[in-house]
Structure formats: structure tokens, C-alpha cells
Simulated scan of single mutants.
Amino acid sequence: MSGFSDLDAAPPFVIAVANRKGGTGKTTTAVNLAAGLVRHGLRTLLIDFDSQGHAGLAFGLIAGRNEPTAHDVFSTGPEALEHAIIAATGKTGLPDLALADIRSPHPAGILAPDLLVRALDVPRIRESYDVVVIDTPPSLDALMVTALTAANAAIVPFVPHPLSFEGVRQFSRVFFSVRLGAEPRLRHVALLPVMASSNVLVHRRMIESLRQEFGNERILDPIRSDIRLAEAFAAHQPIFDYTPSGRGAQDYAGLTEAIVLRWGLGS
């Protein structure tokens, strides 16, 4: 950050958007949260750690063969991440982006859990970003643990359905395992209901059940169902650009505001 030397620059605040299940609005949340943070004046990097590459695809980008990717940190070391960053220069309201490797993303052998921590600690990233958002893979594997180890906070999107209750519980066990590890950075977790409707009884019951188990302070306001969110993805735009007055944009703007205030971003 300006005014600091390389050694004194404050590290960015890192948010992992994570769920062990697919189809929970994870990438939609990562993409629109990152865009919302940019609109709050925060210098934001979005890292696509999911081998499906959907976070990049949300902006119409996919890594070509032999192009640098976020997953290169596993093969060539922490310094590889900064070379994978695509700057959003001249594109208002968009985060910088590190694309996923959709061809061979899963590293062989034992991973050092602090690999991404070290990748985010290089001077260029420390000086250039206030916030990093990570779209994690939908699995409880070494990639997920690597992302959570680097994170200060985790947002867990979930569809308020009975099947998702146990998935959130399983993820919580991984969260607390990482949090109790050596020199933990991970301090915060928030559960985000998505594709939710206050008119659906089962949705209300599931949200209330999680509220009772994990505490009211860990439940974020729901993201309502909105077909415009899928349309925005297909149009390669954040929801704020595609339908700025729609409920999807309203809800993700509310989420961004809540996260900025709750975790003191930009303060």
C-alpha cells in the first residue's frame, strides 16, 4: 500500500468462498462479492482456485494452454501467483483476476499448507491489494485446506435445503481444524443462504436451524432467487453491471456492505 515499504505493507484481507458441495452459488458469490468490493473502493484480487474455471468464465476469460494460472504455485512455487494476475486496467468495477488451470490443476504429492500464504505475501501483492477473494474447489481436499490456511475469513454459501445442513456441518469441522492449526490466520466464518425465499417454509426452517446451531452473528442476510444472476454470468458481467436495479444486485450490494462493516475492510 502507498506510504509503506515492502516489509511494512499490510497484507490484504483474504476471504475464501467455500462449500464442499457444488451448486451452492459459490462462484456467483465470489464473483459478485469481488466486484462489490471494487465498487467500495477496495483494490481487489479474485483467485480462481476451482479447476472448473468458472470464476474466470464469469468475466469471459479462461486460461489457454501454457498460460500462467493460480495453480502454478503448486508446480513452480509461491512467486508464480503474481505472474498469473490479469489486471482489470481500464475496466471499471472489475477485480484483478488469477485464472484457474482447467487442464491439470491437482498437484501430486504432499502440499505445504502455507503455500498460498507465501504466494500472497510477495511484495507486489501486499502493496497492490486490500482484499483477496478465493473461489475454492467444491471438495474437502488439499486445495481447499491450502485456500483456508491463507484466508482470514470464510463465507459459506448454502441453499437452505435439508441436504445442505450436514454439508455445512462437515465444512465447519474443516474450518475449525484449520483455525486450530499452527499460526492460524482464519478467524471468521459467515454462512450465506442463497437462492432463498422467505415464502418457502423449509427455507425459513433451515436458516433458523443453522442460526440456532452456529449463532445469529454467523448468518448473513439471504441472497434471493434471481434468474438475472445466471443471465449476468452468461453475459460475462457482474450483476451490478447487468441489472443494477434488480434484487440480485441489491442483495449482493447488501452482502458487500455487511462484509466491509463486519470485518473492518478498508479501515
Rank of each mutant, 00 (worst) to 15 (best):
L97P: 12
P68Y: 11
D101V: 00
N32G: 01
L94I: 04
T89F: 13
E67Q: 15
E82S: 11
A87W: 08
G53Q: 01
G56T: 08
L94M: 08
R65I: 12
V38H: 05
F49T: 00
D96W: 11
H40P: 00
A87G: 04
R65L: 07
L57P: 03
A98R: 13
K91S: 07
D50E: 05
A35R: 04
A55P: 01
A55D: 00
T89L: 10
T29Q: 05
I85G: 09
A88L: 03
G109Y: 13
S104F: 11
E67C: 03
R39I: 04
A30S: 15
V38K: 05
N66L: 12
F74H: 13
T76I: 09
L94V: 05
L33D: 13
T69W: 11
T89V: 12
H71I: 02
L37W: 14
H106I: 12
A55L: 02
T29P: 00
F74S: 07
L99C: 07
P95M: 05
A87R: 07
L61Y: 14
A100P: 06
F74W: 14
A63V: 08
T29A: 02
A88G: 08
G93E: 14
I110V: 13
H54I: 02
I110D: 15
D72Q: 04
H106N: 09
V31F: 13
L94R: 02
L42R: 08
D50V: 13
S51C: 01
T29S: 03
H71E: 06
Q52P: 10
T29W: 06
H40D: 07
V73W: 13
L111H: 15
A35G: 03
A84Q: 15
A55R: 01
A84S: 15
F49A: 12
F74T: 03
H40N: 05
A87Y: 15
P68E: 06
T69Y: 11
P95F: 04
L94W: 12
P78W: 07
D96F: 10
I85H: 14
G109T: 07
F59Y: 15
P78Y: 06
T44L: 10
L33N: 14
I102S: 04
A98P: 15
P68D: 03
V38Y: 12
G77H: 13
L37S: 08
D101S: 01
R39S: 06
I62Y: 10
A58T: 00
